[in-house]
Design a protein around this nucleic acid. Sequence first.
DNA 1: CTCTGTGAATATATTCACAGCA
DNA 2: TGCTGTGAATATATTCACAGAG
Lengths: 221, 221
Amino acid sequence: MERTNVPNATINRIPLYLRSLQEIKDRNRQIISSHELAELVGVQPAQLRKDLSYLGEFGTRGVGYEVEHLEFQLARRLGLTREWSIAVIGAGRIGSALLYYKGFKERNLAIRAILDIDEKKIGKKVGSLIIQDMRDLERVVREENIDVGIITTPAASAQGVADQLLKAGVKAILNFAPVFINVPEGVVLRHVDLAVELQILTFFLRRHSLMEEKMDEEEVY
Amino acid sequence: MERTNVPNATINRIPLYLRSLQEIKDRNRQIISSHELAELVGVQPAQLRKDLSYLGEFGTRGVGYEVEHLEFQLARRLGLTREWSIAVIGAGRIGSALLYYKGFKERNLAIRAILDIDEKKIGKKVGSLIIQDMRDLERVVREENIDVGIITTPAASAQGVADQLLKAGVKAILNFAPVFINVPEGVVLRHVDLAVELQILTFFLRRHSLMEEKMDEEEVY
DNA sequence: CTCTGTGAATATATTCACAGCA
DNA sequence: TGCTGTGAATATATTCACAGAG
């Protein structure tokens, strides 16, 4: 029943389903149909049902899905029924903002440490954490049982930081630095680049304004 | 030559190609092969060549791509040869962090305004901008010619803010609030959820640790 | 010869449409 | 009857493999 070949596209959507389910649960809703949940997430109902079918059978035909049950199942599949310890590398504005981000704690994602190389930052407090010296990374990873490293350094330092994280025993990396980093086979790695998202937006904006110009021209004839 | 049917997957990667090209240009590199650029971006060479082929013919057979020329062409296709004006809605930690983010200015993405509804924040300075009252949104959008709105409010406010942005004349929205928002046909919309990325990571982490447990069991027999 | 550009082949992902169960 | 679960059909995306330009 725990299938192994879950498509990538499905994995990317499970957190979205979970997010909506949590919201629905907070409104004391008991049962929800694929149609309604899909609407909240912004996908097609068939898409949602197929995605869920890769994980198991959670619904009741003719009825729908029990909100709390489905929520638990998805959380379990995402590994959120245990807590994960996270270290943020880079105590800049984005790194600091992540410390305060509520969406993490709610999902058993606990930021346990923040580190930097800048002497001026080391020792200062961010939220409830003290910024630690990057030279102490191995000790921090060991003591805090760090599972995941989040890199929020400048691009030039990112690959080096990733190497240090892996050497210290971290098994997964979320990279916010605007550069591609290489890791050995088996390490879990994802990239987030805030400027990239905006550029995809401007691609479509440009296309729109070109189309409008085109239409204006045609009106002349 | 300016083809219209660029696949979505390709559009998502163009900013990554551009990012690497800018880095390469800064190192005074003149020519680069598809193989080398692909390596920097983390894709297959054939993927890169096919992606570029949807936009035009930029290389020289037997030689490679002229870095500066390709960079300009990709920037143009992403609409980055003109400046875009951006307003950030929500002067929380993430909204503020975005104001200081260098990756935007470098790419002609200019944050021109930041707004909030919180009386305590309005009037305060963030970087070089003064936090404005959300009630003045229409005026701000008009005066600053805002093209893009970035939503960094709590989930509960996001849909309302999106509606106000569109009413004020904004044509594209980047939503950081952890909720799906609905917009009419033709509006450009993208979602970024920081917690979602971490959850995809923990999905794979869990899978890894399950596999290791499995292997341990097998060793017993 | 080298490296791009691209049809053709393959692999993934989405949507349809309906069988099957409550 | 109503809604899930899922094969089959369709649409997208990636990779292969080679023709073609310098």
